[in-house]
Write a protein that binds this DNA or RNA. Structure first.
Lengths: 128, 128
DNA sequence: TCCTATCACTTGCTAATTGCAAGTGACCAG
DNA sequence: CTGGTCACTTGCAATTAGCAAGTGATAGGA
């Protein structure tokens, strides 16, 4: 996670948020994690087809920003999975609103899945 | 606004939304418009200091995506202002959630202003 | 033992985007 | 005729994105 005295463009919370997650891919990874995905390969297999180097970079940034945590799930060979932190899980309401908005205004987009809309941040932490 | 048969990366509404507004500046412009700003110079004077060419580009994209509308406010010299469409105004709940999130987790960020949190999409349209 | 496969990345390289600084065009006021 | 305002545009260097291919650790099978 970035150290304390972070210098953002302004003191506006929205602006700070966009400096962390304002791009085309970061929130898609968070979306996948909200849906139970946790491994590098899972994220790569999402239909949007994130390039591998971008994925590695975004996972690093999300971890630096305290939104996700990287944890080993086996030691031989060493392999890691990615889990939402409380900060990351609390992005769920944002994603839910954004999903609703897009479904309302983007012709041809699917409605957000029921389990996604019914989820709550607390449920996304440890016990899957 | 982009024509119908738009080809997005996937049918996921979140993904489509991020193709429209997934960058560090677009939602800041929408934020400013939610706060009553409407002119090029207003946006440029926001504390984040958006570069002029980026601002022009983002206003064009937001208009193409039907989020804002460009309207003349005087004819000599021809000058335009930018207003939220219903689609744009309905981004307010997303911004409110994101503002709350960031204020909760970004040390040093201001709370979202009261009038911003109290606003409703309908109020952002014609009658200011 | 050697071969193949899996998973999680990294590297190289080109193309596109960003951001800074400066410039432009239309007009108005003195 | 000069200077100023507003809303952009342009040029250019620097950063970032994206594609394709490669790497390293290990397991499993012939």
């Amino acid at each position: 996670m970035k150290s304390l005295a972070q210098n953002y463009r302004s003191q506006c919370p929205l602006s700070a948020a966009l400096e962390m997650i304002g791009d085309k891919w970061s929130l898609l990874i968070v979306r996948d994690m909200c849906m139970g995905k946790s491994r590098y390969g899972d994220f790569q297999n999402s239909p949007e087809g994130i390039p591998s180097n971008i994925l590695a970079n975004r996972l690093r940034q999300l971890e630096e920003n305290g939104i996700i945590k990287k944890q080993p799930y086996q030691t031989n060979p060493p392999r890691y999975e990615y889990l939402l932190s409380p900060k990351g899980a609390d992005l769920l309401p944002v994603l839910q609103q954004l999903g609703l908005w897009a479904h309302r205004y983007v012709p041809g987009s699917m409605p957000p899945p029921d389990d996604f809309m019914a989820a709550k941040p607390e449920e996304l932490l440890a016990g899957k």
